[in-house]
């Protein structure tokens, strides 16, 4: 079993009102089969035994789908591996002697709660602004009543795969949430079920996105590169179209 030794520089911050700073820790004999979060578990277990407070970090499913985990490792959201969340990043990506700088996802719209834990409820409010089809439970037509081409369903699914982790915001030089917002708008704009509210939805969600303090998009493509689900900026182009249609031709 291969093991490596690491130096970690981790951002420690008590809460949103306190100032934070980097703390340096060394870890020895980390098995390369570990996931990044398991490595942090080892660190936390060590810290606990030393009577120090463990590093707070968000995580839940640990299989890359819940979107709860995430940190910036050496300047890259979710670390250097492509299309993985932090929990699916494995230590074999690193070499012995490496120094890893671990920072929380930073954005004006994501206040830091503690250490690496940030508050992403701004995302929820963007969805609440219109990321749904306004139908009640019951009284829906048969699932096969409206045919949807396989290609359309797949395109919609490409966008719907978003896990809401916030890496796009964290990596965007402007802290924009365009990839996140565009994913939901694209998913619904592509499907017949999303048509009735299409124009209103784009306007409402963009308005909320701006109100939350997310930045604007300067088409830097960073979001697409770090997205653990490989969501394409083609969705941002679609959002731009949806928004234009909505605001220029909406009722």
């Amino acid at each position: 079993m291969n093991t490596i030794d690491l130096t970690l520089k981790i951002w420690r911050q008590k809460d949103n009102d306190s100032l934070g700073n980097f703390e340096t820790y060394t870890l020895r004999d980390i098995t390369t089969d570990m996931s990044f979060l398991e490595m942090l578990d080892v660190l936390n277990e060590n810290l606990t035994k030393e009577g120090k407070e463990p590093v707070a970090f968000d995580h839940d499913c640990r299989e890359g789908i819940c979107g709860m985990c995430g940190a910036v490792v050496d300047g890259v959201a979710h670390g250097p591996d492509k299309e993985v969340t932090l929990c699916q990043l494995h230590m074999r990506t690193f070499n012995t002697g490496d120094t890893l700088v671990i920072e929380p996802f930073r954005s004006r719209a994501f206040p830091i709660r503690k250490d690496l834990v940030v508050d992403r409820s701004a995302f929820d409010r963007v969805i609440q602004a219109g990321g749904y089809v306004s139908i009640n439970t019951g009284g829906t037509i048969d699932g096969n009543a409206i045919p949807i081409s396989s290609e359309t369903a797949e395109l919609s699914m490409d966008a719907a795969a978003c896990i809401g982790c916030g890496a796009c915001v964290a990596s965007c030089p402007n802290g924009a949430a365009m990839l996140f917002t565009s994913a939901k708008i694209s998913q619904l704009a592509l499907l017949p079920q999303g048509q009735p509210e299409r124009k209103k939805r784009a306007q409402a969600m963009v308005q909320q996105m701006d109100a939350e303090g997310f930045g604007h998009c300067t088409n830097e493509k960073e979001c697409e590169m770090v997205c653990p689900k490989g969501i394409s900026i083609r969705n941002i182009a679609r959002l731009n179209r949806e928004y234009m249609k909505g605001i220029l031709m909406g009722e």
Partner: peptide, 23 residues
């Protein structure tokens, strides 16, 4: 069956056959 109808109406992108029916 109602669950599927409900989810489709919400915009859940279920897999589809080429003809457009649910797979």
């Amino acid at each position: 069956g109602n669950i599927i109808d409900q989810c489709v109406a919400q915009g859940v992108p279920f897999a589809r056959e080429y003809g457009g029916n649910l797979a």
